[in-house]
Amino acid sequence: MRAQLRSEFAKLRSTRTILGLSAAMLGLVLLVTLLHAFSLSTTDLASRSGQVRVLVEGGELVGALFAGLLGAMSLTGEFRHGTIRPTFLVTPRRGRVIAAKTVASTLTGFVLGLMATALAAAAGTLALAARGVTVQLDSGNYVVLLVGGAAAASLWAVIGLGLGAIVRNQVAAIVGLCVWLLFIENLLVDSLPGVSRYAPGVLGRAITGQQTGTLHTPALAALLLVLYAAAAAAAGWPAITRRDVD
């Protein structure tokens, strides 16, 4: 599988997709973080939880979304461009390809999540200072934010990969991820908070240490999100190894 893993990293490095995704992600992180920091009242921003929220919503959510897109595109891109055929001709034991893609997506997702939360932490902290709010966060909060955000993104990359394995269609996978994370989960949070704490996007937020309302602790949230990622990989595996390739 090491040969397949080297091949997967060479695939990532040899197109501009990853650059484009990173640039779009960082731009969105900046936008969301600054919008939060400058639209919330200073009273909201004065509390620790309000401050975590500014940093998390921009960093973790956007990082998880883009890591999910990256994981999905790792497979759907190959189906879209037809490179799945040469890929499977060279490695007909498809499990090796899926295993390599899982490892590559996990690591790349980790880096994306780290970049997103780091930018959100930096921009958010500066924005809070600019609004004259005393920053209540200690270094522990920042560590949980960065490590949690990176972990959540790496797990979301695997979820995206599993989704991509099942649907194969790139547009469907991208739209599905965006609609779920940005729309359906928000509806769940508003209408069924008891259920929403088990939703994978909300779990990602919980990992970064946003202890408000009904969220799980970061450790439990991480465990539950690992289960989601494992389920996505388990569902995606036969979808790739058993189904014909056109």
């Binding site: 060479a10 695939k11 490179t83 055929r85 040469p86 001709l89």
Partner: peptide
């Protein structure tokens, strides 16, 4: 043992020809 060309356009449009071959060579050792 075997080499095949099934479609004339199984390439990522944004990848160079050399990189397309490099990606496959890496996977095949």
């Amino acid at each position: 043992l075997a080499g095949a060309v099934l479609e004339s356009n199984d390439f990522h449009p944004g990848r160079s020809g050399r990189d397309h071959l490099r990606v496959l060579a890496l996977a095949a050792d």
